[in-house]
């Protein structure tokens, strides 16, 4: 299981624009490198990231090999109601990793 770090406020005012930060442990192997025996290292990257706010998609990213290892993302969303923020990554083979945090909106 990949290690994931999420930074999101736990409380926010309704209508407040909040910053969400997410980082996941992943090599983002480009497919352009060779090992010490000269053999090509196969590409292995995370392809998609999506953030769901109470199940509704609020931000999507598509990654290419040019995203640095251990991808970091910062983006914004408007606090509308209390609930769950889910952060989900999908790799090139369709395998998903995700983590959720709770947000209380008043």
């Amino acid at each position: 299981m990949s290690t994931i770090r999420i930074a999101a406020p736990t409380i926010a005012n309704k209508g407040e624009v909040i910053e969400l930060k997410a980082m996941i442990q992943h090599e983002m192997e480009t497919g352009y490198r060779r090992d010490r025996f000269g053999k090509e290292i196969t590409r292995d990257i995370l392809k998609y990231f999506e953030c769901f706010y109470n199940g509704e998609s609020v931000f999507k990213a598509e990654f290419f090999a040019a995203i640095a290892a251990n991808p970091f993302l910062s983006f914004f969303t408007t606090a509308t109601e209390s609930g769950t923020l889910e952060f989900r990554w999908i790799d090139q083979n369709g395998v998903a990793s995700s983590q959720s945090v709770e947000l209380e909106v008043s």
Binding site: A61, F64, I67, L73, S74, F75, F76, T77, T80
Partner: peptide
Amino acid sequence: NVARFELGPRAGKASIKTRIRM
């Protein structure tokens, strides 16, 4: 290609940070 982002009015602010390879 580096990345493609999809966002909308719920974002509140069109501001994104990441780290890239050059």
